[in-house]
């Protein structure tokens, strides 16, 4: 069977958008072999518990869902006291004070527990799939990000393709770096070295639920590196 990945992010609790995308996946050829969900499963766009349950339903099993956490999940963990910090300054700064109460109300303890069991990301073949960047789930990467930052994140990713979802945008860009001379002097000697970064690819996977009425995601065939950007109206 030809490996054919569907990669999505940013459902943000939008069950209608998720259903529309899942229907769209059904008709893709070659058939989808793996479904990657790169975080932001929950959010303030509808029914968080319903989306969490939907992703665990048996009809998705043939798609072998690989789900990792995103920015919203990290906010939720902090809010429920199971995260790295007991505070949610990022949530307040980006979504306003009211979001704190709304998020708290919108999700059950058991859903939080399930989300807590998800990984940070996936290293598969020569690809790294994460929500934000290899550094954190909050970091936004786009082609407009400072080239030095992009270069560093791709070095850290240690992969030829980096898929990410934080920006919610669809993009497909290449980064290449060359001819940096590094001279190091220590107490015991001197060493000169030249550094390059062979061409690497950065892919934005769009957002399923952020924009009402229009979902986006990507399809990827690891066998031939072919990428397809998909839009679904619902």
């Amino acid at each position: 069977m030809i490996a054919h990945w569907a990669i999505l992010s940013g459902i943000e609790g939008n069950l209608r958008a998720l259903e529309a995308v899942l229907r769209d996946l059904q008709r893709q050829r070659p058939p989808i072999t793996t479904l990657y969900v790169l975080g932001d499963i929950i959010g303030l766009k509808g029914q968080n518990d319903a989306v969490v349950q939907r992703l665990q339903m048996p009809d998705l099993e043939p798609l072998d869902p690989q789900i990792c956490i995103g920015w919203w999940e990290e906010q939720c963990f902090n809010l429920f006291g199971v995260g790295l910090s007991g505070e949610v300054p990022e949530l307040i700064a980006q979504q306003g004070e009211a979001a704190v109460g709304q998020l708290w109300e919108s999700i059950s303890r058991s859903s939080v527990q399930w989300l807590r069991s998800l990984p940070f990301g996936f290293h598969e073949l020569d690809c790294l799939l994460v929500h934000g960047s290899p550094v954190s789930a909050s970091e936004v990467l786009t082609p407009a990000t400072s080239p030095a930052v992009l270069c560093d994140r791709l070095i850290r990713a240690d992969a030829n393709q980096l898929f990410c979802g934080r920006s919610g945008e669809l993009f497909d860009c290449w980064v290449r770096a060359e001819a940096l001379t590094s001279e190091v002097k220590t107490l015991d000697g001197r060493e000169t070295q030249t550094f390059d970064l062979p061409q690497r690819r950065l892919i934005g996977v769009g957002s399923v639920g952020r924009q009402s009425g229009m979902a986006s995601y990507v399809l990827y065939q690891p066998g031939n590196n072919q990428l397809k950007q998909c839009f679904v109206r619902y």
């Binding site: 080239p147 993009f171 290449w174 940096l180 590094s182 001279e183 220590t186 550094f195």
Partner: peptide
Amino acid sequence: HIPYVRYLREGKIRVHHRGETPQEFQA
């Protein structure tokens, strides 16, 4: 805990976004 001095010279980074002119950066 090990001292050193490191000079970084002449690195060039190129970002090519599909459908747009490549962006080049030299530090």
